[in-house]
Amino acid sequence: MSVTQATAAGTVSGLRGAAVPDSARPRRRTAARRWRRALSPLLIVLVWEAVTRTGLVPDSKLPAPSAVLGAGWRLALDGTLGGHLLDSLTRAAIGLAVGGGLGLVLGAAAGLIRLGDDLIDPPVQMARMLPHLGLVPLLIIWVGIGEPLKISLVALGAFFPVYLNAYAGIRGIDERLVEAARTCGLSALARLRHVVLPGALPSLFLGLRLAFAAGWLSLVVGEQVNAQSGIGFMMMEAREFSQTDVVVLGLLVYALLGLLSDFVLRIAERRALAWRRGLRAT
């Protein structure tokens, strides 16, 4: 082989090796990992379809996924599902905003101010030992059985995770970092922005994810107490007419809402904490 031929062969080999850049490999691994994560839910759906179609589980007890999707398509076309979903999302948004906002403010006050810690933390720690869903009878006496009850339950469910994680996130910051910032001449507001907030963000995002999960759980219970709309009301109405497919559809809607909210929070956490590199599973 001549020198020219060897050079050409080396060039072709180099081009083939460079056909897949190193930057594309992480994207391929991420795509493969997403497919693996989708494998087990898909397998569950297939097994579910098989056991109902073969009669191992009566259709009246657990309808097939195809029947549930058919019920969802039917309710979506006539606007029933969209109306109930909008009402549920409105209640969840208001309750999460009220409970999460209050939990963030009180958690920050208790974590940053000694007087706030002495006055706020003890009653909150006592109240969090009470199951908030067990307060339904008392809430009915206080606020009635209308919309305030449902929003109050969601707010209670969201309050404690946000408060506890905001408080723990602030108290978990290394005090030497704050002292170093003070030595460098940063003002109190600057220390809060550049030291306290970044240090507490991981715990705060965890609290938000837990708050969303507790909020959806509280909404399920609240919408089954004298509601006139919402996914929970749709499920209770379907139970009266033995429409098991609609009941299962409501459960799937709640599950998808929870997964979607958690997915959005994970994306926001990844972008807000781009500077942090944690331990990755191998």
Rank of each mutant, 00 (worst) to 15 (best):
G116T: 12
R91W: 04
L130I: 15
A158K: 06
R176V: 15
I113P: 02
L156K: 01
L139G: 09
V124I: 13
C184H: 15
G100A: 00
V124F: 05
A109G: 00
T183R: 09
G82L: 15
G103E: 05
R91I: 06
A155L: 14
Q125K: 10
A108C: 14
L135V: 12
L138D: 06
L177S: 05
D118Y: 03
L81F: 11
L86H: 11
V143T: 13
G101C: 10
H194N: 03
D87M: 09
L156P: 10
R193I: 03
D117C: 01
L192V: 00
L115C: 05
N165Y: 02
A92F: 13
L164R: 08
R114G: 02
V136K: 01
A92K: 02
Y167S: 01
G82R: 14
I94Y: 12
P123N: 06
L115I: 15
L81G: 09
E179N: 04
I173V: 15
G95R: 07
L156C: 04
G101R: 13
L138I: 14
L189Y: 10
L130W: 08
A109Q: 03
R171M: 07
R114W: 09
I151A: 02
H84N: 15
R114M: 07
S152H: 05
L138V: 15
A190P: 01
L177A: 14
G100D: 03
H84D: 13
A92I: 04
I170W: 08
S88E: 04
V124R: 03
H84V: 09
L81E: 04
L177C: 06
D117I: 00
I94F: 11
I120K: 04
R176M: 08
H84P: 09
R128C: 03
A168S: 14
P137Q: 02
G169P: 05
A109Y: 00
A127K: 07
G107F: 04
L102W: 11
N165Q: 08
L149P: 03
K150L: 11
G157P: 13
H84I: 14
L189H: 12
I94M: 14
M129C: 03
G82A: 15
A158C: 10
V178S: 10
V124T: 06
G99H: 02
G134W: 08
I173N: 13
G157E: 09
A127S: 08
V98F: 13
G169D: 05
A108G: 13
L89S: 07
P161M: 06
P161L: 08
I120C: 10
L81H: 09
A158T: 08
P131M: 05
L115H: 12
V162R: 00
L186Q: 10
R193T: 12
L138E: 01
A110G: 01
P123V: 07
I141H: 06
